[in-house]
Design a binder for these strands. Structure first.
Lengths: 348, 348
DNA sequence: CTGCTTTCCGACATCGTTGTCACGGTTTCA
DNA sequence: TGAAACCGTGACAACGATGTCGGAAAGCAG
């Protein structure tokens, strides 16, 4: 008895075009034409087919169609970022998604978490799903493994870091110029003893920022001999320790340039621990939400993740549309936002 | 002349199993066996095939295989969130992704942006790509349109808000209890005139939070007649204005309960504008990064987006593994984090 | 050497869709 | 009035893989 009632509401298999065709009393190709909005179907037939499809809740199988379709496009794109939980990449992801969705393209997103081991596996997962293009924030030392895919004309845009071992479009912040901007700002406020607190030196962007910092000091004629340059800080705790050590040293810096979010936060915490947040200047690389509500407000060199995402998506879509211009890097400018902490003068 | 050199490095078409088979001198089915690690292939043949596949950079087409495969699984899952740029959903996304990737499942993510018009279209895009399951933070007033899909046994887990019009698993924060928690905290610190600042009343979770607030006041025997309850605030600016108006009123509140991130920030900004941040207590719903670096530190009722993502993924994967238990809601507890702003006593 | 398993492998149909083509029926035009 | 053009439609192969099944070769017992 339950059998009967169950079978009446039980799981209906997902309908195929063939079943829609049978219900509408037409050939399968006609259904295909109606579903895809192709011409040469009489209005009456069209209506019949639409009704049949609706009554069965028919959803065409995009991938089956793709198998046969001439252009072979899956209307799908792969996005590899550091972590989808990182607001920087979240904003970037949103921008990419916006451009993609406008063209009916769905986005696969994956997090790399600085694990170069996973990079190739995740890309392979995208490729097996036949994405139309890739947007990649890579971390491995070389992207040469992508060369065959590049030869197959799979559009590929690198973000955040430039690729090594292959030639492909890249959209990156101007890390060196941004760091120089921050440095000049501190110099202009009278600082000479500016400490540099950097991320892992294995990261290309981290090295770029350090280079920008040192070069700006050089341009200003400041001897870099006595400048504390500390690298390989990758989290809040290590940055905190490093800054405390600096502050407690015989000749502490009058200003800090922190090259990354977590380092910045660790540094601020350390300054507060010594009640020096209003006496030691800080400029951080990368904006932080609520930075303006801190006291003093946090001055930063802000990247523009939204713009990076927009440009990357624009490049990828252009390639998909047949753009054959040579690959080259796109630089997205950074911007100095003064909120207080960077405008503190030097105190003996 | 260029023709020759170009053809040698020119784009090679993506190889198929058939081509790997030809190169290895075996049948196509044997290649299939090797690629999928099936038994009954001699080690010698296996090696030959592997080498051929490598030399062609063969990547199997997951979707073509899927068409024929018995279980019909695409190893793909759809995640619909408010916005991938929102850190709350970013964290949740990361947790879902982690569980999925561990099983070789890729994640499609899409942002809804409170646009109920897009909801059905985005779900349809997922369905046409034959995702194995859905995790959805919905916004439309009814999810009845998903009933046919539910009958087809497509696993589906709702997050953040419970679905309307159908029965399905849901993983949500305990909004009412969390609001009550915040309210009790303020009551215990002696406040009686607590203003409520809420999000759009059309949002289910916002209504729940308001209910929790009012019920807790009721339990404490506080007359709600004179309690300012302001709703339909959805951004920083409107919250700011509302709080300024309250502070300038004849009988201003001694404490604020803000029901959402942006509202909280708008409220804090308003308090600072009147230099009252150390005299009027605030507890916000939802944690904010850097909340502990503000002065006073911001007390909040924190949700646990990571846990929500974990539970949602666990439920979905269990359903994929055949779990048939009846659908029901899972409640993820909230937590009060005291950092200062919520512990300010009432000032006349 | 025969007959039986076991091992390894490939021919073939098939998954759900689209591209090609041919067919019957109107309409149009010289 | 006949040919040509067009419209609406469906039969069929094909896309790249996997499931089924049968068969050749090798191993083994009698």
């Amino acid at each position: 008895m339950t059998t009967m009632s169950e079978s009446s509401v039980g799981p209906r298999p997902r309908p195929t075009m063939r079943q829609v065709a049978a219900l509408a009393g037409v050939g399968i190709k006609t259904v295909s034409r109606v579903i895809n909005g192709e011409p040469d179907v009489s209005p009456a037939t069209r209506a019949k087919v639409k009704q049949a499809a609706d009554s069965l809740d028919y959803q065409p199988d995009l991938h089956a169609g793709n198998l046969r379709r001439a252009d072979g496009r899956t209307k799908t794109l792969g996005l590899l970022v550091g972590s989808v939980a990182n607001p920087f990449y979240g904003t970037l992801h949103r921008a990419v998604e916006k451009a993609a969705t406008a063209r009916g393209i769905a986005v696969f997103a994956s997090s790399l978490d600085d694990d170069s081991e996973r990079e190739e596996a995740l890309v392979s997962a995208f490729l097996q799903r036949r994405v139309d293009g890739l947007i990649l924030a890579t971390v491995a030392t070389s992207q040469a493994y992508l060369a065959p895919e590049l030869r197959r004309r799979t559009p590929m845009v690198f973000i955040d870091r430039e690729p090594a071992g292959i030639e492909a479009d890249a959209v990156v912040s101007d890390n060196a110029a941004g760091a120089a901007l921050a440095t000049r700002h501190l110099l202009e406020h009278g600082h000479r003893r500016i400490a540099y607190l950097g991320d892992l030196d294995s990261i290309q962007t981290a090295r770029e920022r350090r280079r920008g910092f040192l070069e700006e000091l050089g341009r200003a004629g400041v001897a870099t001999r006595d400048i504390p340059v500390i690298v390989d800080l990758h989290d809040e705790a290590s940055a905190n320790r490093a800054v405390l050590a600096l502050l407690d040293s015989p000749n502490p810096p009058t200003a800090l340039f922190t090259s990354q979010n977590l380092v910045t936060i660790g540094a601020i915490t350390a300054l507060r621990a010594r009640a020096l947040q209003n006496r030691v200047a800080v400029v951080g690389f990368d904006d932080i939400s609520l930075a303006d509500l801190l006291s003093p407000g946090l001055s930063v060199v802000a990247q523009n993740p939204q713009r990076i995402g927009e440009v990357a998506a624009e490049r990828l879509l252009a390639r998909l549309d047949g753009d054959q211009t040579p690959a080259h890097p796109y630089i997205v400018p950074t911007e100095l936002i003064a909120r207080g902490s960077g405008e503190i003068g030097p105190h003996a």
